[in-house]
Structure formats: structure tokens, C-alpha cells
Simulated assay, not measured.
Amino acid sequence: MPFLGQDWRSPGQSWVKTEEGWKKTTADEKNNNNNYNNNNVSVESFCKEEEEKEEKEEECFNKENLPLSLNYDMAARKRKKDQMNNNAKLPYFHREKWIYVHKGSTKERHGYCTLGEAFNRLDFCSAIKETRRFNYVVRLLELIAKSQLPSLSGVAQKNYMNILERVVQKVLDDQQNVRPIKELLQTLYDSLCGLVQDMGKSVLVGNLATWLRRMESILQWQQQLDCIQIRRPTSTGMTLTELPASLHLNIMQRLTDGRDLVSLGQVCPSLGVLAEDRLLWKRLCHYHFTDRQIRKRLMVSDKGHLEWKKMYCKLSRCYPHREEYSETLHFCTHCHILFWKDTNHPCTANNPEGCTMALSPQDFINLFNF
């Protein structure tokens, strides 16, 4: 860079702030200021002496009341620590319910966001309260428990456990979706049992005591879910078993999980007969699996009929089920913004709807695999 001054050995220019603004000071003004400072030395020394006297008096008072001051300081610190611990589980609220996520080879990222920040910015704590988003969030937590635990930062771990605690509490209050949450907790516990053994290799972020406390919390949640008792409705209306067989069959056709169909068939003998209907299991097989997968696992009975129920059980062990959610997260390919469908984001494209794409839980995790 070129030097713009007249002489590099010059002491520089002095500026003084006045009511009209900053002004340069000349040599005469510098001397006047120095003389004024010399005249005021006595005033400054007098002020310093007074301050020293006050400090000595405060020290004497503190020495006399030292036990009281120590107790006061310890109580204040304890209150501050308790307040921080109580507020640790409260999520941060943001005005914008969307995040900027950009996957590219550039070294700089505008609005860089991690997975832990995404939990707060996308407001997952409120998403689990909505029925349309509940299954999506649960599936996302399950995928993270299976493969993403070692990559979670400390903030992401805390947010993950806070959301999981809210999910368990919601299930205990509503008495719905008990089985998926049990499976989620069991998956998380099994993953932690395998990872905690390798703590010496720095597999998980954080100390061992913290993860052991979290595992104890998971066991407590499992016990609470095992002890849950479904409350019977107080209304004296018509029950499920009193409905006609046509409505029973219509209800079974809307189930997408074979385990729900088996559980419903155990309610009464009439429902058990309907649960063995071959057309119901055939519908489930074609809903979750492709024709090519079905042809590979054909099972024929002695009478020459296809065993659709056995085929469904075998296909479920070999291939993943089809995933459909009432509401999912969306990603704008033009703005690189991740948002819920009912949350408007500042899109600059001419056709915003053509740039958005629905994300599955696995696609959401892949966005943060930088």
C-alpha cells in the first residue's frame, strides 16, 4: 500500500473534539493544552487521594462483614446457576421459521446453519404438537438415533433430548402413538449402548457421565410408557364392536401397517376373521413394495393361492416400507431455504411453487452432511 503522508518520520497530527466537530490542533494549542494540564495536576492528585481514602474505607468494611458478603455472593451465584439450568430446556424463539442451507464446494457459506440450530429455527417443539407433523418428526429422530449420534454437537444433543422429552410427555398425556415412541426409545438406547463402549475413541461428543444420565432418562421413559393405561371413554355411544362388518372392513382398508391390522384383529373374533382377508394383505403388499420385489418373494399355498400375509411379513424384513407423511419440510432450490409448507419464505424466483420440493426425513439429514 502506498504511503500518503508527507514525511514518515513526522509525529502525526493531533485532533481535538469540539462542539462544532473534530479540529486539528497546532503547536501553540498543544503547548496551551500542556500548560492547562500542568495547572490541573493538583486537582487530579486531590481527586485521586479522595478515591484512595474511599477504597480503604470500603476494604475495612468488607473485612468486618466478610462472612456476610461471602454468603451473599454464593447465594447470588447459586440463584443465577439455577436460573440458567431451568432455562436450558426452553428453546430459543426466532422470528423467521426457516433456515438457509447451502451445499456446495465453496469455502464460504452465507448463513451457515448446523443441525442443532435447525431444531430450534424450524421449531420442532411446536411441530410435535400438530398431528400432521408428528410422525415426520418422530421418523427424523429415529434416523438420527440410528446413524447421526456421533456427528451431533453439544447444542444439537441438548435440543435432541429436549424434543424427545416433549414427545414422550405428549404420548403420556394423549395416550396415542405409544408403539412408535417405544421403538424410537429402544433404537436410541441400543445405539447408545454400542457407542458408549467406544467412548475412549472419541465417538460421541461429550463426557461419559452425561450420556449415562441420558440413558437413565431413556429407561425411565420406557418404564412410564410400559405402565400407561388407556382410559376408556365416558360416553355411552356405540362401540367399535357394535359397528357393522362393512364399516369394520372399511376401517381396516385404511390401515397402512400390518401390525395395526393384527392388533385390531385381536379385539374380538369377528374382527379376527376380517383381519385374515387376503385382499387386505394384498393391498398392503402393493402399497409398500414394488412388483419386482413382490415377484422375488412369492409364496404359494398348497391350494395354489398366494400367501399375501406371509409375503408381507417376509417383504417387511427384506425391504423398507413406503413412507408418506401428511406434512413435510420443503426445500427451495432457488433460495436454498428450508421451511415448513405453511411458513412463507422470501423467495425471489418468478415461480416459487416450481422451485420447492418436499423432503423426506432422510433428505433432511443429508442436507447437513457437509
Rank of each mutant, 00 (worst) to 15 (best):
Y112G: 11
N35Q: 08
R95Q: 10
T131A: 07
T333V: 08
K53A: 03
V273C: 12
R214L: 13
L66A: 12
K314G: 02
M238C: 12
L284K: 08
R278Q: 14
S10M: 11
S217M: 11
C60Q: 02
G265H: 09
G304W: 07
Q362S: 04
Q253L: 11
R292Y: 06
V273E: 15
D198Y: 14
L243Q: 01
M299F: 14
S151Q: 10
R259E: 15
P269D: 01
C332F: 10
C60L: 04
N250I: 01
D302V: 10
L172W: 06
K107G: 13
N65A: 13
N31K: 10
G200F: 06
G206V: 09
K314M: 05
N159P: 01
G237N: 14
N87C: 07
F93D: 11
S14N: 11
Y319M: 10
D190G: 01
S263I: 00
V138A: 15
P244I: 12
S151N: 06
K158W: 10
M1H: 07
N366Q: 02
F370H: 01
A127F: 12
A275Q: 14
D291L: 14
E117V: 02
I365S: 00
R179Q: 15
E29S: 12
G304C: 09
R166V: 08
L219C: 12
D302G: 01
L367Q: 00
G5D: 09
R232I: 00
S246A: 10
D173N: 13
E324C: 06
E57A: 09
N31F: 05
E324K: 00
K182G: 03
E20I: 06
L149P: 03
G12A: 07
N35R: 01
G104K: 10
F124M: 11
C113Y: 10
A358H: 04
V155T: 01
R214E: 05
V300I: 15
E130F: 14
V267H: 09
F61S: 03
C318H: 08
N135T: 05
C60F: 00
T356I: 14
I128C: 13
D260E: 15
S246F: 03
W281D: 04
Q176W: 06
E130H: 15
I337S: 00
Y312F: 08
S270I: 10
Q266D: 07
L329W: 02
L298M: 15
D226Q: 09
S270M: 15
V138Q: 05
I228N: 11
K24W: 06
S202G: 12
F339G: 01
N366L: 13
L338H: 01
D277W: 14
V138D: 05
L280T: 09
I228G: 07
R278E: 04
H330M: 08
H345M: 02
Q293C: 04
L225F: 02
S42L: 01
L306W: 00
N162I: 06
Q362V: 13
Y312M: 14
G154R: 07
E59V: 02
M357T: 13
S360E: 08
N85P: 02
C47I: 07
C318G: 00
Q197S: 08
C313E: 10
L359S: 07
F370D: 01
N120S: 14
Y36L: 00
P180F: 03
K80F: 05
